[in-house]
Nucleic acid binder design. Structure first.
Lengths: 334, 334
DNA sequence: TTGTACGCGTTATCAC
DNA sequence: GTGATAACGCGTACAA
């Protein structure tokens, strides 16, 4: 690899001069600057960001930790982060935990050893004790989509209490009285809040809250299918289900189909996220939309802002969810 | 941040001794090694991989460039890469090009400046001249899913000639004689090969090959919708369409739905990839399955093998595709 | 078995 | 304007 020294030699100047030319220093004569740049290009010189980072104390990269990149919600979020980070010359190191807490920690350690300038975490559980340690360290980080209960950290997400309410109120308005809930991991705050909203809304309307109509899974299609089957195979089953994310809802859809239930005639179904596959013809899932791409952009903007030393404008940013009514919801049968 | 110097001081030894302890050198007495490791842990020492990389000439990271992380095919592929890379302590720097050639190049430059140890490219176009330059450089890379026509580079993918044949033969066997094709970007090899297979199969069966029944788009749902509408709105339209990937096929599905065409009664549809959403109830897309996760694993394994200096076993690895018949295909109407 | 000295490629800070 | 020097944190010949 050609280094700054090689360029210096070829140009008959010192390495420092080359460095200055590369960094467009105003101290240099335009003429020499141009000449050095030309020679550097001819030699195929590419700055070693590793070495530069060592001096400057920055790696020019941020870490992004997501639970499941195969979930379109996180894929879109990742796109948003990448777009903003790359625009400012930052690299994005992606880590996929598959919901495994141990892997999450191991990734964060890896990322810190690599001296990423900051972290975006979309994986934290509500009571993660490790987060406290991270908060004590000097690695800036922002939480996105999933927040912590204990640590007051920068967070960008969607108002899930409102989103959950939107979903369940919609079902209640349609006339449903037997409403089930299928959540994600029970220790994930957004799942908890959607559940909380479910409970609150049922209570407000004095509707029954049955144990068998509540299940927690792990936000995957397979788990949604399992939970759906279990819930729908009961002797008395709900006439509507609020699934705490779209891929889970799609799993429930399959379970219902297998059991010979028609949607929405026999069962109404509401998801959460509005991934692009929710709007497919014949699926037409009613859902609560989250601006996933924008969430990623915002999280990146925020982190980048912290990295440039500017103070955060606020510590929590909550975007509004939006109910998207399609064709998986209807009044209950009978 | 605590460095090896700090640990050395605390332990009353020299920095080199600490370095040796950290690297588990056999030269050290077990006792001192253990003591140093303990002290390092107490101090919260984390090795600076940047500095280490500068010395060792390696960054411990690989770059992954994909055209569209929101396409589940690439999301799964990314999972595969991540799994294998992380298992060996490598970080994965993800870059999403959205199909933009300029962005691809700019990302590759960024990645090289960051001194990633190697590259996995899932974005190359068949005649990309930049690839030649890359091949000349000393950055190891492997191509996945999309190969080059000109540069003989390590490649892992699926036999698209066979995959395309599987798809079209299936339609022919069902009795279709008017078969359309909707491809991806025309300069992407896998799209070209699926098209080639389409043409070959039609010719072999002496079936008509009409211009209006062939369209190229960009492998997105939106583009599939556009192309589908255009093709299906013609006076004489095909009775079956082979879409070169699943998200495109889902776009066609929407177009057909809008035009009041029933699938598979009025129109048969075959996709490619077998993303998880293809198997959804009510969608049940007939498609050609690609082992996307495995493709990612293989690509990573291969690159990592190259990085460890071992010679590649071969330069091209072609996995077999598999036809998955579901419910979007049936004999033609009438 | 451990310490010393140097180098990896770059930038900041002094000199000139 | 430009060059020399030190420093970033680490690994490794070489010396002790």
């Amino acid at each position: 690899m050609v280094t700054i020294k090689d360029v210096a030699q070829a140009a008959g100047v010192s390495p420092s001069t080359v460095s200055r030319a590369l960094n467009d220093s105003p101290l240099l004569r335009e003429e020499t600057k141009a000449r050095i740049l030309r020679i550097a290009a001819e030699l195929g010189y590419e700055r070693n960001e590793l070495a530069r980072g060592l001096v400057l104390g920055t790696s020019g990269a941020i870490g992004l930790v997501v639970p499941d990149i195969a979930n379109p919600f996180f894929a879109e979020l990742t796109r948003g982060v990448g777009e903003r980070a790359h625009a400012r010359g930052y690299g994005v190191v992606l880590c996929n935990t598959d919901g495994d807490l141990e892997r999450e920690r191991s990734y964060i350690r890896l990322l810190r050893r690599k001296r990423v300038d900051g972290l975006i975490l979309a994986t934290v559980t509500a009571d993660d004790p490790y987060l406290k340690l991270l908060a004590l360290s000097h690695t800036p980080f922002v939480l996105v989509s999933r927040r912590s209960q204990q640590v007051e950290a920068p967070y960008v997400g969607v108002d899930d209490l409102l989103g959950g309410k939107l979903a369940v109120e919609h079902l209640v308005e349609l006339g449903h009285r037997k409403i089930g809930f299928i959540g994600g991991p029970p220790d994930v705050r957004c799942s908890q809040e959607r559940f909380q909203a479910y409970q609150d809304t049922l209570r407000r309307h004095r509707l029954p809250l049955r144990k068998g109509w509540v299940k927690f899974s792990d936000f995957t299609q397979a788990a949604g299918y399992q939970a759906g089957r279990a819930m729908l195979a009961r002797k008395t089953r709900p006439t509507a289900i609020f699934a705490a994310n779209d891929v889970t809802a799609l799993g429930v859809l399959r379970a219902a189909e297998e059991l010979g239930l028609d949607i929405p005639e026999d069962l109404s179904l509401v998801g959460y996220d509005d991934i692009s596959f929710a709007g497919l013809p014949r699926i037409e899932l009613t859902t609560v939309a989250q601006p996933s791409f924008k969430l990623g952009q915002l999280a990146a903007d925020w982190l980048l802002r912290m990295l440039s030393g500017k103070p955060p404008r606020q510590s929590v940013k909550l975007l509004p969810p939006k109910l998207v009514v399609r064709e998986t919801t209807a009044p209950p049968p009978g």
